[in-house]
Amino acid sequence: MSAAEKVRPASAAELRREIRRQLPLLDPELRIVAEDFMGLASPIDLLAISSRGEVVLILLSLEGENDAALLTRCLAQRAWAAPRLRDWAQLAPELEIAADAPIRVILLAPDFGSETLAAAASLRPGVVQLVRHVSLRVGGQPGLLFEPIGDEVHAASPRPPETREPLRGKLPGALPSFRSGLSDNDLSLKPAPEESFDD
């Protein structure tokens, strides 16, 4: 039996390659459609589309990089991408992007500090998923372990509104979807604290 050895990825490119290869382990519904492209002032590592057409931004950091800065960057990139979804959907219809679905972000880092965990927990559930990654070499072959920590961050949180119903309103019996290409950032709005609107 081969021993597993923890290693440090040589570069972000190598890590991206491994993530692409092992993406089904992270989320089998995702497919990568773009890699290392310029977003708002910095590159977005990977852009994926879920089977429901949601756009998912994947940002990663290596050992020693600032995970809190990664969280800030991911929110900025999400705000940058939101108003562009409709154009992307028109320009690349074969990707079947659900332009009215909120953008998800997955952050991959070797570890997350308590400040990052607390900040992520204060966001609406479903917006940011934190995942620890561990690079391994098993029998000479590279490997990657994912450890999603979203559940512990949002352990007691209700499901976000955008995941209560099918996102594209195409499933039989589903309520029609809310449509807007705008985020709170676009409108300079500050989300109110979570509260019930039920009758």
Binding site: R164, L175, A192
Partner: peptide, 24 residues
């Protein structure tokens, strides 16, 4: 005041109109 407020309001009215068939 935020997007989620609009989402929730829309969901409420969508659910209420759904009480009659074929009325989305």
């Amino acid at each position: 005041h935020c997007r989620s407020e609009a989402e929730t309001a829309f969901e409420r009215i969508a659910r209420a109109t759904r009480s009659k068939p074929g009325s989305d």
